[in-house]
């Protein structure tokens, strides 16, 4: 459903020079599965998901969503994906109903079907009471519900949630996680990015842990815990990241030393 192969992304940064945000990332996510994308801040999760959403073009490698290549057929990809991110806000000057309707029409859903679909979504996501509320008047939880409805309005087979619980209170976060589970049970392929390990533990069937743009490990949660002898995902995550940092610092030191030697 989502196939990522050797995906790389480089961009220029004033202060740090060229940055490799992704380095040869590969994984496959399947229908009816919640695939967790874990990593600390700056791991490259948002960059990867923006590439899946065709917002960014990869520098190398390839990615396919529901069989469509993100570079060759970006329009098809956008028709088959629902994208919810902390960066995809709702319009302040539109009501919940208007926002979802607007995107439904952009996705090409027929008017009659759209109305039925929206009624269903508003009921299922318990949004009927905020139907005519302007975005500017909504709480963070309400806005997140509207974002989910907007991403689901065209009934896509693939859904991407990027830090979707960020800023939500406990109740709103639990409701969102329940919705994600429901969607998984409906057979959707869900890519769920987070840096909150408890969420991933509760939700994800398989995970990939990213660190500085590279994949550290990938697999089923239980398998990974067994493999590393940890009973808790957070501990496993912390251990993997900690193992990488001294290695990276040593590499950096070695590089500086080598440059010094080369310079004479």
């Amino acid at each position: 459903m989502v196939e990522v192969e050797q995906l790389g992304k480089t961009y220029d940064d004033w202060a740090r020079g060229p940055i490799q945000a992704l380095r040869g990332v590969s994984f496959h996510a399947l229908p009816g599965e919640i695939f967790g994308l874990l990593g600390p801040n700056g791991a490259g999760k948002t960059t990867l998901l923006r590439i899946l959403g065709t917002l960014l073009r990869p520098s190398s490698g390839r990615a396919r969503v529901n069989g469509y290549d993100v570079v060759v057929e970006p329009s098809q990809v956008r028709h088959h994906i629902g994208f919810v991110s902390a960066n995809t806000a709702v319009y302040d000057r539109m009501t919940a109903w208007e926002t979802v309707e607007y995107f439904g029409r952009l996705y090409g859903v027929e008017r009659s079907q759209l109305r039925e679909r929206m009624e269903l979504l508003f009921r299922r996501l318990k949004m009927t009471d905020i139907r005519d509320v302007l975005g500017a008047k909504m709480s963070t939880g309400m806005k997140q519900k509207v974002s989910i409805a907007r991403a689901l309005v065209h009934d896509p087979p693939v859904l991407v949630f990027d830090e979707a619980t960020s800023g939500l209170d406990v109740l709103a976060a639990r409701a969102l996680l329940a919705t994600v589970r429901e969607l998984r049970d409906q057979g959707k392929c869900i890519i769920f990015s987070t840096h909150v390990m408890r969420e991933a533990e509760k939700l994800c069937d398989r995970v990939v842990i990213l660190h500085r743009g590279s994949v550290l490990v990938e697999g089923r949660l239980n398998d990974l815990m067994q493999q590393f002898g940890e009973s808790d995902l957070e501990e496993l995550f912390f251990r993997l990241i900690s193992d990488q940092e001294p290695q990276r610092e040593a590499d950096e030191r070695g590089k500086v030393f080598a440059e010094g030697v080369a310079a004479g």
Partner: peptide, 14 residues
């Protein structure tokens, strides 16, 4: 600034 441009860019509109 309001974060809605990314929402629109992720839609099927070219």
């Amino acid at each position: 600034e309001r974060g809605t441009l990314e929402t629109l860019l992720a839609s099927p509109a070219e």
